[in-house]
Write a protein that binds this DNA or RNA. Structure first.
Lengths: 190, 190
DNA sequence: GCACTTTGGGACATCGATGTCCCACAACGA
DNA sequence: TCGTTGTGGGACATCGATGTCCCAAAGTGC
């Protein structure tokens, strides 16, 4: 509930630099060493250890920060507004823009570190879940599968687009278009 | 092109046991140690090293074996027969049954070891690609996205179902049903 | 039963990642 | 300017994973 409070200002900046670098790096290479993270953050290895004494401390902070960013995105999307189709498009877009965060959260390494944060993830995308259920009730989304399944598919398809971009197989625009199209068709009711 | 040829018979059995255990284990824990692999295969660590001197040797063999299994599955599915919808259902089913193999191939750790095997993967599911293109030509599958995209979505959705099963969130039957349903709707033309 | 093959496990060296400590130096604020 | 705060890098100990070697024991086929 508080991370950018207190502290000297320069401490906050350093902390953010480390976190940003870690998220970017761990998104593509979850097994990256702390030395690599420090280098990516343009920070000494001892400084990194000063902020995050152990590797798990860094991992936890990365996941927490990712969840925080995700929360902001979900909240901003105001999924209760407009038609389910429109809201789906908004959240899809929002997820896509959070590429590194998605990658970090989707990668399974968080399982190794903090089991308790998995529950937080469910909490964070509760609004998405509600959107999916609302869409099902209103006849927009497929009722033949569970809302949980739709949620999983949402994540998977967005992830696929991000991965395709990362490989250079598609442009961001093309990926976003394909994601939206496939999701709309795959999730809507007859 | 040859792996179960020659050799003493007991060597083949041991090799298979190691490979099977490795695929199963690495599917869920790509970073598992060689000691764990040996234990899972009920084999001494020195025996493991005798068959696969280095870790990369084991990883390569695992990927090669996975590709071989995938090849058999794709060939057996005879994707050129029947309607695209039927063929899609067959390959979906086949992929799903190969859960651990899919997990191993989908996990990115293969990228670290043998870049050259990625091309082999494209080669292996070339028939799937052809199916998707055929379906597009015949008006069964969505023409608004690329066949490559459809292929990625196919993998992603099957993977999602497998993951859901692994977490105990769904039964295998429910997962397979959801996968098929979502894929059919998500990929077909208007 | 005998010779050959295969196996299991211990002992050992090595390597990279991690974590700790310390100290000189730079940055910053009153 | 001076004291406080933050930083970078080196030295070091530790740990787990990896890889090598060897030998006694179990398994296999003739």
């Amino acid at each position: 509930m508080s991370s950018t409070t207190k502290e000297s200002g320069s401490r906050n900046r350093t902390r953010r630099a480390i976190l940003d670098a870690a998220i970017t790096l761990l998104a593509t290479r979850p097994q990256a060493s702390l030395a690599e993270v420090a280098e990516a953050a343009e920070v000494g290895r001892s400084t990194l250890h000063r902020y995050f004494p152990e590797r798990t401390d860094l991992l936890s902070a990365v996941v927490e920060d990712s969840l925080a960013q995700l929360t902001v995105a979900v909240t901003t999307a105001e999924l209760h507004r407009g038609t389910p189709a429109e809201a789906l498009r908004r959240i899809t877009h929002a997820y896509f823009e959070l590429s590194p965060v998605l990658l970090v959260l989707f990668g399974e390494h968080l399982i190794d570190t903090r089991k308790d944060l998995i529950g937080d993830l469910d909490e964070v995308d509760a609004p998405v879940f509600e959107l999916l259920e609302r869409g099902q009730r209103e006849g927009f989304f497929d009722n033949g599968v569970s809302a949980e399944w739709l949620n999983r598919v949402l994540w998977a398809v967005v992830y696929t687009g991000i991965a395709a971009c990362a490989e250079g197989a598609m442009t961001r625009h093309a990926a976003l278009e394909s994601i939206s199209r496939t999701l709309e068709r795959g999730t809507r009711a007859e």
